[in-house]
């Protein structure tokens, strides 16, 4: 363990920690745009600048390892002035259309502008102008809103192991894009969307469905494979409009294309919405009363005539534990047979 002082507080941290990690562990706030604890330190956005006693210039907290006895100052007029300028510079080349931006209310840049009270901007100049043109069906890419923090590029390479995008060109022309600026063609896991601090990357399925206001968020578990990823369903007007996942979960907030973008089946118009009985070869809509009575009568009749073992049930690996428990209990206790299985028993 190492001992250091941050803003006059003496704290102990593990050797090898960065100043940013040390501060976070002790709930000392340092603003960042390019940092994600799940990614390698990057030092790109310059917002986490701090002053260290004995070091002549401010350093980035995210890339500076702590050393014994270090004295760190995370906030003072000078540092906040620098940070304010950084945010101002970013905003000087940003389409400030928060009124209609999908990300409003959940945007780190917007929060920083709010925090520093930035209404006017001292800097004027050319704006990057990019046409939105990416025909992929999942991810909306609005590169005018990109602040080049590189999180999307890094998550794609470091976590997903795909490297579908990179920062191309230099200086003012620098831009995140797939090779040769083609349309995105990747695993569409949407990790990049989940880490983007602005509205540059958004899920296409959710556009215009609702932002943060009046959204109900429900934590649950993914219905696809057996990984058991934790999902947060964003619900508006009885419809799931977006899926996210918290970094504090079993899956560290990462999802795949199915978990993140595969939710539209819930509100599909093809969902079965009424009981059906086949009459004269065709399905007819009936009431629950009629359907349940009919099933019970037929199953009861077959049991009386051929015995309970003439009836068999297949349960579902998609249903809950409670439903599976009831299903086998139904067969054993109500029907009277052990003929109950599910097709993925192996």
């Amino acid at each position: 363990m190492l001992t250091l002082t941050i803003d006059g507080r003496q704290i102990e941290v593990k050797e090898g920690s960065t100043v940013l990690q040390a501060a976070r562990e002790h709930e000392i706030y340092i603003p960042t745009l390019c940092d994600d604890p799940r990614l390698e330190p990057y030092g790109g956005c310059r917002l986490c600048l701090v002053q260290i006693e004995g070091v002549p210039r401010p350093v980035t907290a995210c890339t500076t390892p702590v050393s014994e006895g270090m004295k760190v100052e995370t906030t003072n007029e000078y540092i906040e002035g620098l940070r304010r300028t950084v945010v101002e510079l970013i905003l000087s080349d940003h389409p400030n259309d928060c009124m209609v931006c999908e990300k409003a209310g959940d945007c780190t840049l917007q929060e920083l502008a709010y925090f520093y009270g930035l209404r006017e901007n001292r800097f004027r100049g050319e704006r990057r102008q990019y046409a939105k043109r990416d025909a992929n069906p999942f991810i909306e890419r609005d590169m005018e809103k990109c602040i080049l923090c590189g999180k999307c590029v890094r998550v794609c390479e470091e976590v997903q192991g795909v490297s579908a995008i990179e920062i191309a060109y230099r200086g003012f022309n620098a831009k995140v894009c797939p090779p040769f600026e083609k349309d995105l063609d990747c695993e569409f896991c949407g990790q990049c969307v989940s880490v983007c601090p602005t509205g540059a990357l958004m899920g296409k399925l959710s556009l215009g469905k609702g932002r943060q206001k009046d959204i109900k968020k429900v934590d649950t578990v993914c219905p696809y494979c057996g990984c058991g990823c934790n999902l947060t369903l964003h619900v508006a007007r009885n419809e799931v409009i977006r899926v996210s996942s918290s970094p504090e979960t079993l899956n560290e907030g990462w999802l795949c294309v199915k978990g993140r973008f595969g939710f539209k089946f819930i509100s599909s118009p093809e969902r079965l919405n009424t009981p059906l009985i086949r009459k004269n070869g065709r399905f007819e809509e009936v009431s629950w009363q009629e359907a349940l009575d009919h099933v019970a009568e037929r199953l009861g009749g077959i049991r009386d005539r051929y015995g309970p073992d003439a009836i068999a049930g297949l349960s579902s690996a998609r249903c809950t534990n409670e439903e599976n428990y009831l299903f086998q209990k139904f067969f054993r206790a109500a029907v009277g047979t052990n003929n109950v299985d599910h097709c993925a028993r192996y």
Binding site: C222, G226, S315, A317, N339, V340, R345
Partner: peptide, 18 residues
């Protein structure tokens, strides 16, 4: 690695003939 969200559970819950 189990292939469906609740294969483990449906096996645990006794949806097996034996």
């Amino acid at each position: 690695l189990r292939g469906q969200n609740n294969v483990q559970g449906s096996t645990d819950m006794g949806c097996s003939p034996n």
